[in-house]
Amino acid sequence: MRNKLLTAATLVCSALAVATTSLPTAAQAQHRHKVQVCRDVSSRGSRNTGTVVGAVTGGLLGNALSHGGGKTGGTIIGAGVGAVAGHQIAKHNDTHRVCHWEYR
């Protein structure tokens, strides 16, 4: 009987100790404030799409602007310039901010 009483008293004291240490005190609660946390998120899929669209558009434009026998060279140069431009445009337009609130 005595062991059961000691065991129960020990469990109650342990539970109270855990409960009081896990609860914030009034001073701790006053110093917590709401903070907005943001980060930039980008996906690589948009960059790849921008590169392909830029290459196709640049190739068509290079073919249309080149003269005579230089159409192949104009198409290749236009595709290369368009791919770089499309990638850079997609990279800058793809990044967006994701924000959430945290208590600190």
Results as ranks from 00 to 15, higher is better:
1 M>C: 11
1 M>Q: 07
2 R>G: 14
2 R>P: 14
3 N>V: 15
4 K>F: 04
4 K>W: 03
4 K>C: 04
5 L>H: 14
6 L>I: 12
7 T>S: 08
9 A>S: 10
9 A>W: 03
9 A>C: 09
13 C>D: 10
13 C>T: 08
14 S>M: 09
14 S>Q: 07
14 S>A: 08
15 A>Y: 11
20 T>Y: 08
20 T>E: 04
20 T>L: 03
21 T>Q: 12
21 T>V: 05
22 S>N: 06
22 S>A: 12
22 S>H: 14
23 L>E: 05
23 L>W: 11
24 P>E: 15
24 P>R: 02
24 P>Y: 08
24 P>S: 07
25 T>S: 08
25 T>P: 02
25 T>W: 10
25 T>R: 04
26 A>E: 04
26 A>L: 13
27 A>G: 08
27 A>H: 10
27 A>K: 06
28 Q>E: 04
29 A>R: 11
29 A>P: 01
29 A>V: 14
29 A>E: 09
31 H>R: 13
31 H>K: 14
31 H>N: 15
31 H>G: 15
32 R>T: 04
32 R>I: 13
33 H>Q: 11
33 H>I: 12
33 H>M: 09
33 H>R: 10
34 K>Y: 15
35 V>G: 04
35 V>T: 05
35 V>Q: 12
38 C>S: 02
38 C>A: 01
39 R>P: 00
39 R>M: 00
40 D>P: 13
41 V>R: 07
42 S>H: 06
42 S>C: 05
42 S>K: 12
43 S>N: 12
43 S>M: 12
43 S>E: 07
44 R>S: 13
44 R>D: 08
45 G>M: 02
46 S>Y: 10
49 T>E: 15
49 T>I: 10
49 T>Q: 05
50 G>T: 03
52 V>F: 10
54 G>F: 00
55 A>R: 05
57 T>H: 12
59 G>E: 01
60 L>N: 06
60 L>S: 03
60 L>Q: 01
61 L>M: 14
61 L>Y: 03
62 G>V: 00
63 N>K: 08
64 A>N: 13
65 L>T: 07
66 S>C: 06
68 G>P: 00
69 G>E: 07
69 G>Q: 15
69 G>T: 15
70 G>K: 01
71 K>S: 09
73 G>C: 01
75 T>D: 03
75 T>F: 04
76 I>Q: 03
77 I>S: 12
77 I>D: 03
78 G>V: 00
79 A>D: 05
79 A>I: 10
80 G>V: 14
80 G>Y: 07
81 V>Q: 11
81 V>L: 14
81 V>I: 13
82 G>R: 06
84 V>R: 00
85 A>E: 00
85 A>S: 04
86 G>W: 00
88 Q>S: 14
88 Q>H: 10
89 I>P: 10
89 I>V: 09
91 K>S: 07
92 H>G: 13
92 H>L: 11
92 H>D: 15
93 N>C: 13
93 N>H: 04
93 N>T: 14
93 N>V: 13
94 D>V: 13
95 T>C: 01
95 T>F: 00
95 T>L: 02
96 H>P: 03
98 V>R: 06
99 C>H: 09
102 E>A: 04
102 E>P: 02
103 Y>S: 07
104 R>K: 12
